[in-house]
Nucleic acid binder design. Sequence first.
DNA 1: GTGAAAGCGCTAACAC
DNA 2: GTGTTAGCGCTTTCAC
Lengths: 350, 350
Amino acid sequence: MNIYDIAREAGVSPATVSRVINGNKNVREETRKKVLKAIENNNYAPSSVARNLSIGESQNIAFIVPDVENPFFSQILQGITDKASDSNYNVFMFGTKEDPEREHRILESLKGELIKGLIIIPVSEIDEETAFRLTNFEREGIPVVLIDRDIKGSNFDGVFSEDIQGAYEAVECLIQEGHKKIAMITGPETSRPGHDRLRGYKMALTNYNIEINEDYIINGNFIEEDAYKAMKTLMELKEPPTAVFSSNNMTTLGCLRYLKEHGLKLVEDISLIGFDDIKELQYTDINLTVVARPVYEMGQEVMELLERRFSYKKEGDRKKMIVRRNYVKTWLIKRGSEKYKKFQEGNVNE
Amino acid sequence: MNIYDIAREAGVSPATVSRVINGNKNVREETRKKVLKAIENNNYAPSSVARNLSIGESQNIAFIVPDVENPFFSQILQGITDKASDSNYNVFMFGTKEDPEREHRILESLKGELIKGLIIIPVSEIDEETAFRLTNFEREGIPVVLIDRDIKGSNFDGVFSEDIQGAYEAVECLIQEGHKKIAMITGPETSRPGHDRLRGYKMALTNYNIEINEDYIINGNFIEEDAYKAMKTLMELKEPPTAVFSSNNMTTLGCLRYLKEHGLKLVEDISLIGFDDIKELQYTDINLTVVARPVYEMGQEVMELLERRFSYKKEGDRKKMIVRRNYVKTWLIKRGSEKYKKFQEGNVNE
DNA sequence: GTGAAAGCGCTAACAC
DNA sequence: GTGTTAGCGCTTTCAC
């Protein structure tokens, strides 16, 4: 069943059917009715692939993400698909598993795919090949927008968060609670969130005249297991830290596992602030203070940024189009860690 | 840059370029080299949409899921995309938000999409329209496979879990710990997991000669908030239950919230067994016993089932093809709830 | 307001 | 082993 069959049944030409389908005004109401009836009768749906080939464009966008099992990423995905479905875009989902090779292969396979846009959380911000490939998409007229992570030296649009500020506030909070020995489980140096959060950490310490102790800075690679090991290393120091700033949700879990296995209590034995909230903990008596972000909204926003690029292309306004890099604010959710001060003062039980 | 450009540059015909691209054997090695070089030189990738139109088939599969933010679903998604990428399938992700209308609209939009297969977690098993639409896909030669939830009266392939058995074992466990007053927060009657788990619950009680108390059965709709309210209702009964079986991960969280807000301790004050594990709880001191399933593997398996359908189509073996409905086993992860018995006996502190 | 026909970029049957 | 050519199902000038 194709457009010719419908045309024949409606007694019109394929061109007219096409006009009806696409809402073209130049069709007599009577003709439109006939066509619509024929479409209805045959449960006909125009072939989007034929249409795409003909107009050289599709409604498909690709989303490349390291790991959808991580709630942070699946929330973003939800934000993207919700927004996308409002505008009838279809979302291809690809997972890189934090593997640059996989990322390259996905990008390679996308070359022939006639996608309308690309949203990516790149594995690394200094991956030359990824950067090159993304630039090529832009050159071909396919907008690329980033979310959370960046590509160094690029000027793709993107939605990021104020990681430096967020980390700063977390560490500041610990300092104000009286901590001096504050460690950090960092993320990969090769990602903006990774090094920016470290930067925020260092800035806070410096601003409060606390010397930076390199022994207190251990890479957790945004991985649970690595964070666990990092905690072990930290706690086995001659002078273990009294507080830890963990740089993402996975590393926070690694920290918690260490604490649990060693019978250490939050606040009382050690303070911990995580980056990104962990919903499930609210149902427990782990009152974890975290740096929170509007994750779902970031997903929606990145989709909006992409649509904005589409509209600019339509208007041919390429020159006027300025780069948009949105930084969402983080906020600190204090959950009990402020008790530390009281604890120090000796009245924990209050 | 298209296949004609490459042909011209390589000094061959488009057909030959096509042969090279598709790994056709009937090409002289020398010719192949020339073509590959031209492809390389121009960073050319064949248009998949043109190819799809030509062969009347694509490598795209659609995955329709209620809510990717639910870890259960995002794990499935991960399993699917991992498996899909092995075979170079692209996965379209659509979210229904448990809304039948949305589901219908998605299915409608898919009619013209030339997808190769469809994986769906339907909102309801008794939705006539969805059932009808899915059947149409099958009729058009597009295989449909289900995961977790079912379509009543259909015989689509699918991957499910042994929900009756799983629920039975959970409730049996509670009984063996000495509980008599066992409540259940159920899921929607309109989903297989919903009613099957209820069935398992009832079977266990019946088998152990415990009368079924309808006051102890409250619908949580697989929703956190509903489960919270259900818990409230239960605990305000004249004779509140001593144990609760919660039928999915969301309802379990609702239960936990109620317990937390009312200062009730697991095991000591009330026993709780959930369906589906909640990873994050392992990092806390909530030792929750759960019915677990191989979720990620279910995702992989459903993709395998789909591929199996593809291969049958290729072999034209339609008649020999029998329906495959795989039921994965669940297992009980006991985490501390067995302490109840000891508690009853008066030696909790051991 | 409507139709004829070329074209989007590829594949595959057929001819050589 | 390779080329010619007619589709695949739409859109979009250009006529009328």
